[in-house]
Design a binder for these strands. Structure first.
Length: 476
RNA sequence: GGCGCGGUAGCCAAGUGGUAAGGCCGGGCUCUGCAAAAGCCCCAUGCGUCGGUUCAAUUCCGACCCGCGCCUCCA
């Protein structure tokens, strides 16, 4: 059974397979706009795409994953000017930060990560093709707009009825949404090329229509065409990108190339709620990975929390949820630690990729793998993993070897890592000393003194966990 | 107005035409000088409401109630 995934356009579950004439499965994902730190909502989408890619690879499909960097648009230009930096310097800084977060979260680097700025010639060529074919027009100020009414099937992704396309009189900022003001023929038309304005500073590029910069939507069309061709296998992004971004991408590419069938499959992930609220800067609930690390969570725990809901259902991200993730991971680690000696594997072997190649079996985790392949049901898969973990009877060595291999492969598909060494806080000298004295008192059966020393330790914010043969000191 | 999503235990969250996975929390037990950790056990006769279809519905159909998203920059 192949991997099945819900497709936004056809609204049905469809198999994901490489075309017979293609060497790999082409997957394009709309990447970040690098004008600030990406927040966990952005990362939920990228992590889900990463799990999809890993799942396809675990299934044996060779994937070509393309995810762009949007490094020219209103926000990046505004940000660079405000920071007094060149656009390139400004966006490189945020790109580096993005890459650092991605690595921490266990995201595999895409095979190609195109920059919009680097692909401006391709965008200009595409706009020229659109004008030539009668799908775009040049406005008085030198801007170029896409003529939506020239594209008969515009809106097919989200099943918009073009005759009922309604553009509101005002936008969310309360400003008039008036076609005349923008020199557009229709308020539905969108910019392919934006003529230079003084507030753009030094950020402009030459074009047949004068200096200016590309519109946002054309960037993705040009980059996907360049790296995956006029048609490819899957296009992903957040649900909010459906309209208008992805509708526009379809229209641009299909009208420019004359080839229908832009992306064969559309993968959209639902948005995140934070503590029950929509995420927004004004509510102060817009977490970045860095903020969560400051709160003491690991990126691995954040990743677990972000994938613990189905991708088509909005997930309520809470701090409590990350704590749940931490407990769940710890439970998994304990189980693996218990079964590893039975299977004859070490922790290092469990984490090392060669273990995954030893056997092709999934052991008792085969059902979990089946569930994951059915519409990327990660919560269902995790539930099944814990069902196995909770089984009463201990497996035989042979069985546990298969289980270990199966679980290792499954965790690799989910991108979750066990036994991540945690940076333990340094233990102050006085705490070490108090601990030693309490242990001595306990050995001497002077329990009154031992209890007092425990109290002293907790007053300093430390707890002492006794084992048979010693003790651990932990920050409370 | 158009398109779409959801309502399952204290919280989070799967799933199925045949009587509710899993995680967290909570409770009990074992262990333990104490405390913790760990292990074991328990924890929804119920899946928004009301009808319908059915031998059987939380699962299908209809109506309704509630919450939400998009149509406007946004993962």
């Amino acid at each position: 059974m192949p991997v099945f995934l819900h497709d936004t356009m056809s609204r049905e579950l469809r198999p994901l397979l490489t075309k017979p004439d293609k060497a790999s499965f082409g997957m394009y994902c709309c990447g970040p706009t690098v004008y600030g730190p990406a927040h966990i909502g952005n990362f939920r989408t990228f992590i889900l795409q990463d799990v999809l890619r890993r799942t396809l690879e675990a299934f044996g499909i060779k994937v070509k994953h393309v995810r762009n960097i949007t490094d020219v648009d209103d926000k990046t230009i505004r940000g660079a000017l405000a920071a007094g930096q060149s656009l390139a310097t400004f966006t490189q800084g945020w790109t580096d930060k993005f890459h650092k977060d991605c690595t921490a979260l266990g995201l595999l680097p895409p095979h190609v990560e195109p920059s919009a700025v680097v692909h401006i010639p391709q965008q200009v060529a595409m706009i020229e093709a659109l004008i030539k074919r009668g799908h775009a027009y040049v406005a008085k100020d030198g801007s170029v707009y896409f003529k939506v009414c020239s594209c008969s099937d515009y809106g097919k992704l989200s099943h918009l009825d073009r005759s009922k396309l309604q553009t509101q009189d005002t936008n969310s900022a309360g400003q008039a949404n008036d076609a005349d003001e923008y020199d557009r023929e229709s308020a539905n038309d969108f910019a392919l090329w934006k003529a230079y304005k003084p507030e753009d500073g030094e950020n402009f590029w030459p074009s047949p229509w004068g200096k200016g910069r590309p519109g946002w939507h054309i960037e993705c069309s040009a980059m996907s065409l360049e790296h995956l061709g006029a048609t490819f296998d899957l296009h992903g992004g957040g649900f909010d990108l459906c309209v208008p971004h992805h509708e526009n991408e379809i229209a641009q590419t299909e009208c420019a190339t004359g080839i229908k069938g832009f992306a064969a499959h559309w993968f959209h992930s639902a948005h995140l709620l934070v503590e029950g609220d929509k995420m927004s800067k004004s509510k102060g609930n817009l977490y970045t990975l860095e903020q969560l690390i400051e709160k003491g969570f690991t990126p691995n725990e954040v990743r677990y929390a972000l994938i613990s809901g189905h991708y088509r259902t909005s997930l309520n991200f809470t701090l409590h949820g990350v704590e749940n993730a931490r407990s769940a991971i710890a439970k998994l680690e304990r189980w693996v630690d218990r079964i590893l000696p039975v299977a004859g594997f070490s922790r290092a072997e469990f984490i090392a990729p060669q273990v995954h190649e030893i056997q092709t079996t999934w052991g008792r985790f085969a059902p979990a793998w089946e569930i994951l392949q059915n519409d990327l049901n990660i919560p269902g898969c995790l539930g099944q993993i814990f069902t196995v973990v909770g089984e009463r009877e201990d497996p035989t060595p042979a069985q546990s070897r298969q289980d270990v291999c199966g679980l290792a492969k499954l965790l690799q598909a989910l991108g979750l890592v066990l036994f991540v060494p945690k940076a333990e806080a340094a233990i102050p000298v006085e705490v070490v000393e108090l601990g030693a004295r309490r242990w001595a008192a306990k050995q001497a059966k002077d329990f009154a003194a031992a209890d007092q020393l425990r109290k002293d330790l907790s007053a300093l914010g430390w707890t002492m966990l006794d084992r048979k043969d010693g003790y651990d000191l932990k920050k409370a």
